[in-house]
């Protein structure tokens, strides 16, 4: 698998969620993802960016375009926040420690082809999502 391009987008304040959505829209459209696939990964990115800010205290999103053999878009959200004590529980629909609907993590997972989460209490959270063309 070849990484064609990599860039980092700050995810620190609430308006950054809008920037994240805009950037993911631009890159996924350049890659030629279908409109439905673009909408799915933008929505997933929006959920994860909000989580990064609210629960992770801010962090960043890495945008990677992939090529060879498959074309795809990979996004990695990383923060140095408190981490998630029970990842399985956090992935369950309806579970939230905040005031949201508890659909962010589980919902994002359903919207992408690959979903990886690394989190430890005190060691932050890293979530990688990939949508293939």
């Amino acid at each position: 698998m070849a990484v064609v391009s990599t860039e980092n987008v700050p995810v620190k304040t609430e308006p950054d969620v809008v920037t994240v959505r805009r950037r993911v829209r631009e890159v996924s459209s350049q890659l030629g993802l279908s409109l439905v696939d673009q909408t799915k990964i933008i929505t997933a990115a929006s959920e994860l960016a909000r989580n990064t800010i609210i629960y992770g205290g801010g962090g960043s999103m890495q945008v990677q375009t992939l090529n060879g053999p498959r074309v795809g878009l990979r996004l990695t959200f990383e923060d140095n926040g408190p981490g998630i004590p029970d990842v399985d529980l956090a992935l369950r629909d309806g579970f939230t420690t905040g005031s949201g609907l508890g659909l962010g993590l589980g919902g994002s997972k359903r919207l992408v082809n690959e979903f990886e989460i690394f989190s430890k209490p005190g060691a932050g959270t890293r979530i990688t999502i990939t949508r293939w063309k």
Binding site: T39, E47, L103, G107, L111
Partner: peptide, 14 residues
């Protein structure tokens, strides 16, 4: 609502 938005919304669980 755009069709792509509707599809995504339901898959998200809303």
């Amino acid at each position: 609502m755009q069709p792509a938005v509707a599809i995504t919304l339901v898959e998200l669980g809303l």
